[in-house]
């Protein structure tokens, strides 16, 4: 296994591209096709947001954080409920000012949460088996799900970003009927891009960012030159908490803040598989691939499947991402941009 096996990856890429282009050849309208494509890309951006949190924590602490979904739910609940309660508590106007203050407070809450997790969960379990740490984050998931709903309530809440839900028509001159694009999705894309830029700047330009990258590269080496590991873990969990907050805000404004947000984050798992556990660009590209693949499969693959086997409805997007990731793992176990792993006895 000296050289990288590129053949199967290229083959898989060709198959994917063919699958992507197939609906065009079978004569569906290009306008509709583009609409699905764009819809998929935007859903993909949202998956990327959740996947980013996974990758950040995995890079810095080697923990596969199953609780990222629960953190998204917790942050979104905090944001939604604080924005609702703050006007009553301190008399600031509801709407944008309340939301902004709630955002700041929720960020603070996520930082405290990061600190608590590091103290209570990570520090006693340091140098344990990765699977044990995964189980611990499963425990954190359950705790956060219960805790969040106990203190914030368990109904469906709204986050109002003040964007109209009306879709807009674009490119009417090029296609018959134009392409419907939701404004919310556009804003989400902009927010996600800003977040990624901020993270890139933070990682590349600040001293803390450099320390984070050093820890990600080699724990022991970083510690031996005096980087405080514990503080770095708090920081990286706090950053992941912030990413979860942003993801929760965007998802929450789209779907409403409810328990299913935590389940939705399970969708980010195939994304990190596809992109590789340690790659931030991988998380973004993986998210886009999964988003597009899922929408395409649902729209173009679902109906024929239902017709062929007389199914009781489609819903193949529930598993499509996972099966895609599974196939991908078979050809390339380390993901698109992951590091090659070599076993030694």
């Amino acid at each position: 296994m000296a050289a990288r096996k590129n053949g199967p990856v290229i083959a898989l890429g060709v198959v994917l591209a063919a699958g992507l282009a197939a609906p065009l050849l079978t004569g569906s309208a290009p306008g509709f096709y583009l609409e699905v494509l764009i819809g998929g890309l935007m859903a993909g951006v949202l998956y990327s947001l959740v996947a980013l949190g996974f990758v950040l924590i995995f890079k810095a602490s080697g923990v596969f954080n199953f609780a990222q979904g629960a953190m998204v739910l917790f942050a979104a609940l905090a944001l939604a409920r604080l924005a609702e309660w703050l006007p009553g508590w301190i008399g600031i106007p509801a709407g944008f000012p309340a939301l902004a203050l709630a955002f700041v407070l929720a960020t603070g809450i996520m930082i405290v949460l990061a600190w608590v997790v590091e103290r209570v969960v990570l520090r006693p379990l340091v140098a344990q088996d990765p699977v044990a740490l995964l189980m611990a984050t499963l425990g954190v998931t359950f705790f956060l799900d219960g805790f969040g709903q106990t203190i914030w309530g368990s109904d469906v809440y709204k986050i109002d970003l003040g964007i109209s839900k009306e879709p807009t028509m674009i490119l009417q001159s090029m296609f018959e009927g134009g392409i419907l694009v939701s404004k919310e999705d556009l804003v989400a894309t902009v927010i996600a891009t800003l977040l990624v830029l901020m993270l890139a700047l933070f990682f590349q330009k600040t001293a803390t960012g450099r320390a984070l990258r050093a820890v990600a590269d080699d724990h022991q080496a970083a510690q031996s030159i005096g980087i405080p590991l514990n503080r770095i873990w708090v920081i990286v969990w706090a950053v992941a908490g912030f990413v979860a907050l942003v993801a929760g805000m965007v998802w929450g404004s789209k779907l409403g803040v409810q328990f299913s947000l935590a389940q939705l984050a399970l969708k980010a798992l195939p994304v990190v598989i596809l992109g590789g556990f340690t790659s931030i660009p991988g998380a973004i590209i993986g998210g886009l691939v999964i988003g597009v693949g899922e929408k395409m499969a649902e729209v173009f693959l679902g109906p024929p499947l239902v017709k062929m086997w007389d199914l009781a409805g489609g819903g193949i997007e529930n598993w499509f991402a996972y099966v895609l990731a599974l196939l991908f793992l078979m050809v390339r176990p380390e993901g698109l941009f992951g590091e090659k792993h070599i076993d030694r006895v």
């Binding site: 006693p124 344990q128 425990g139 954190v140 998931t141 705790f143 106990t150 368990s154």
Partner: peptide, 24 residues
């Protein structure tokens, strides 16, 4: 019942972490 089920989640999660730390 809703609160009880949330508490159940919390205690569940806390116990798992507890067992992993104290007696893996």
């Amino acid at each position: 019942t809703a609160l009880a089920s949330h508490m159940e989640f919390m205690i569940f999660g806390a116990l798992i972490i507890f067992f992993l730390i104290v007696e893996p």
